Amino acid sequence: MAARTGRIKLSELASSVGPSSSVDPQSRIDGVFRRDVPLLHLAANPRNPRGVQTDLDDLSSIYDQQLQPLSVVSRDSWLRLWPDDAIGDAKYVVVNGCRRLAAAHHFGRPSLDVVIRDSLATSESTILEAAITENIARKNFDVMEEARAVDLLANELSSAAEAARRLKRTEGWVSQRRVLLRLHPDLQAILVSGAMPVRVARELALLPAGAQTDAWRTGSAHDPGVETAGEPTHDANPAPTDSLAKSPRKGRPRLTNHEVLARAVRRAGADAETLADVLFELLGEEGVATLTVLLGDRRDLPR
């Protein structure tokens, strides 16, 4: 057989590869900008970790100006991962920018600029990772949305350690976010409102659910003016959102955080095994190792 000569056209190469080929034709257009894509061609990410988009007033300017294009993947790339997802007749699925898409619908903008990034659709976890990473970096999540998103990624990867690596965070940070999901729903609302520091929420989440609200009511840690270095409350003087946010009666001695927790744990009757499980989830492997050293130091102190 005579050897073939001459250059091979990319168009011919693309048409010759099958779905099992290692050459992905879509990857050749990754990063392509498309201007004024009609909204009917755009579907919101059905697996958006933020869920329903609400309170869009801060994006009202999108009617006149779009400062940044949406990141999307093509219809075919999405349906290869989730063939049963209902995306209608949309040509693209929005991975980053679902709030901007919702605002465009809400305020009557007919089209949006997008960048096609099919490389995001390598796997289900890469889609989720992309959606979470950008929102965390821009601080678009409130703390409970962040906790739910981190938990979703850790479950998808079946590894909190791998989730930490993907998000470029420590395992302790991932564990501390996930433990917030144990917080009583009323206390979650107070946390999101800014009336409770994240540090205090993490401590309360260590307690059994039935003891958390009592600990919040009786302790001084829920003072709205309290701020923790690196994790401030969202508002210096937020209005209480619930009866749980009321201050303790005047004249009652203020308890330290560890006193509140100790009393609540004693009331709940938590045993050592339960506490060990909770602490491991909160602190992660590295944090538990540090805790072991600290407990040893406490044991050696004079009584």
Rank of each mutant, 00 (worst) to 15 (best):
V200S: 14
R177Q: 13
L181E: 06
R177G: 01
F141P: 06
E203Y: 13
D214Q: 15
E156N: 09
A215L: 11
E203L: 15
E146R: 10
T133M: 10
A211N: 12
H222K: 15
P197K: 03
V174W: 01
A164R: 01
G194E: 07
M144W: 06
R199F: 08
D214L: 15
S175C: 11
A221T: 09
Q212V: 13
Q188T: 00
A163K: 00
L187Q: 05
A211M: 15
S159P: 09
V192D: 03
V198K: 08
S193T: 03
R165M: 07
E134A: 14
R178W: 05
K139M: 11
E203K: 13
L187I: 05
I132H: 08
V179F: 07
T133G: 12
A161H: 08
L187K: 05
A201C: 06
S159Y: 04
V192H: 03
I190G: 06
E162G: 04
S193P: 00
P185E: 02
S175K: 03
I136S: 13
S220F: 11
A163W: 00
F141W: 04
P197C: 06
Q176H: 02
D142R: 06
A137N: 13
A215Q: 09
A130G: 10
G219L: 08
A209D: 14
S158R: 15
A221N: 10
G225E: 10
D151I: 02
E203C: 14
R169W: 03
R178K: 11
P197D: 07
Q212R: 12
E145A: 12
S193I: 02
E129R: 00
M144F: 08
G219K: 05
L206R: 15
L157S: 06
R138Y: 14
L152M: 14
A195I: 00
A215K: 08
A195L: 00
L153F: 02
I127F: 08
L157D: 05
E171N: 02
S158F: 13
H184T: 04
S158L: 14
M196S: 09
L167G: 00
P224I: 08
L181Q: 05
E129D: 10
E203N: 14
A130L: 06
S158W: 11
A137P: 11
A201K: 04
L180A: 03
A211W: 07
P208K: 14
T218I: 12
D142C: 07
E171F: 01
L183I: 05
P185L: 04
W173S: 03
R148G: 11
I136N: 08
L204C: 10
Q176S: 09
K139V: 10
P224L: 09
L180H: 01
E145N: 10
A163S: 08
R169Q: 09
L180Q: 04
A160R: 11
L187N: 02
S193L: 02
Q176C: 00
Q176G: 10
V200W: 05
I136P: 12
V179C: 09
P185R: 02
P185F: 02
A205I: 07
L180I: 01
A161W: 03
D186C: 02
W173Q: 04
E146S: 14
N140R: 14
A205P: 08
A160T: 10
E146Y: 02
L180P: 00
D186G: 08
R166S: 01
M196V: 13
D142A: 06
N140H: 14
K139D: 14
A201M: 04
R199Y: 01
A205N: 12
E156Y: 03
G225V: 12
D151E: 15
Q188S: 06
